[in-house]
């Protein structure tokens, strides 16, 4: 079953993240996720994440597809106007890419080519509206397409951003515009994960809860700086006490993943460093009698 089919069938979804290389050497990237083949349902291919140039996510998605993986092409509004976005979406569909995850994107000055011109012709809601319009067989200007794409459209949600009411309102607009699944920023608290899970379900999409294993106290503090309310004090204290913070952070994430497997619809691993460990965890979940009915 493909990611899209599983989504429709209400199966538990496991996604992970792949950053295209800075350069043309893509084979190592594919080799790196080989242990997850057939285990992770789809791989989000990031679009010059944090505004740093990488290989085009469209090209990388096609390379993943050809290598036997199901990609989720991420597209942001940062670098392309509505003409380029529609063109890339049509191209992606023609190449066989079915899953897309659409977002506003980080701002240019946060990256390493700060002097670039930011585009932001559309915002995330409008980009989702655009993709939906294409699936209906039309360009934004109303012209009919020769061959309409079929997409499984996703969106993102940061439960720690504000103002919360407006974030929820925007999420609602994204889902109304056609987002079928919603991937979240990393969450480190089962209670928040459950609240977000319920919220996204209520709004009519499939929640896929973001998980990013903490490797060190330094990384935890960095995450706290990005999203102060996202990292609970108990996690920081645990990392401080632990003799092996990397193991502590990993076990913490796995505990959380267990909890989400019970109440949730999907998990999104935003770090593919520990592929072997992740692969065995997924095997365990799929084979455990407590969870296997969800897969």
């Amino acid at each position: 079953m493909t990611f899209g089919e599983k989504l429709k069938a209400g199966k538990f979804l496991i996604t992970a993240e792949v950053a295209p290389p800075r350069g043309t050497e893509w084979k190592d990237v594919v080799r790196g996720i080989e242990p997850l083949k057939g285990k992770v349902d789809a791989f989000n291919v990031t679009d010059c994440q944090r505004s740093m140039v990488r290989m085009s996510p469209l090209a990388m998605s096609k390379l993943l597809l050809d290598s036997g993986f199901d990609p989720i092409l991420q597209l942001t509004c940062r670098d392309r106007n509505r003409i380029a976005l529609q063109a890339d979406l049509l191209g992606a569909a023609a190449l066989g890419i079915r899953n897309i995850c659409l977002m506003t994107g980080d701002f240019t000055t946060l990256g390493d080519q700060k002097d670039a011109k930011p585009v932001f012709d559309l915002d995330s809601v409008q980009l989702i509206e655009t993709a939906t319009r294409l699936t209906e067989g039309y360009l934004l200007n109303g012209k009919e397409l020769k061959g309409a794409p079929r997409f499984c459209i996703g969106a993102v949600f940061n439960p720690f951003a504000g103002p919360f009411e407006l974030q929820v309102m925007k999420l609602e607009k994204k889902i109304k515009a056609g987002a079928l699944f919603v991937q979240t920023q990393p969450i480190y608290d089962a209670r928040i994960a459950e609240e977000v899970n319920d919220l996204v379900c209520e709004l009519g999409a499939v929640p896929i809860i973001g998980l990013l294993p903490i490797k060190s106290l330094k990384m935890a503090n960095f995450m706290k700086k990005l999203n102060p309310t996202s990292v609970p004090d108990s996690l920081i204290e645990g990392l401080e006490r632990s003799e092996n913070p990397a193991k502590y952070g990993w076990d913490y994430t796995i505990d959380l993943a267990h909890a989400i497997a019970e109440f949730g619809k999907g998990i999104h691993f935003m770090l593919v460093g520990k592929t072997e460990e992740l692969a065995s965890f997924i095997d365990y979940l799929k084979n455990h009698k407590k969870y296997n009915h969800k897969f």
Binding site: Q126, Q167, N227
Partner: peptide, 10 residues
């Protein structure tokens, strides 16, 4: 259409 996901603590 509303704030981005980077709007943290106002």
């Amino acid at each position: 259409n509303g704030p981005c996901g980077g709007a943290i603590e106002g």
